[in-house]
């Protein structure tokens, strides 16, 4: 599998380590009511879809950036890859 790194181009997936669902970027706010339950969901529950999945990959043997990769879990086709820092900054705006 080759991951299209936004800065470095196509890179061997073996250079990366995998974390999981990109919803992990959206950490709940510990100060809100119900935060404990929200954290349980955040830490333990996953959509685990058969199909398009947005997920976090770390370019460990590379530029050490976190990517949000959109990939089909049935075919392994990669639809896009973005820098997680850009995704996070975009969401904050």
């Amino acid at each position: 599998m080759l991951i299209p790194h936004p800065l470095l181009g196509l890179r061997d997936a073996q250079e990366f380590t995998y974390l999981g669902d990109a919803s992990l970027l959206n950490r709940p706010d510990p100060a809100t009511p119900g935060a404990e339950a929200a954290f349980c969901d955040y830490v333990f529950l996953r959509d685990n879809p058969a199909g398009v999945h947005r997920e976090l990959w770390f370019h460990e043997q590379g530029d050490r950036s976190w990517l949000v990769v959109t990939r089909n879990t049935l075919t392994h086709e990669i639809l896009s890859a973005e820098l997680a820092s850009d995704v996070k900054a975009g969401a904050a705006q």
Partner: peptide, 18 residues
Amino acid sequence: GSSGRVMGYAGRRLPIES
């Protein structure tokens, strides 16, 4: 391995990845 998919039909999320 299809647990997430099938329980998804019931609208439930699981502490599982396939």
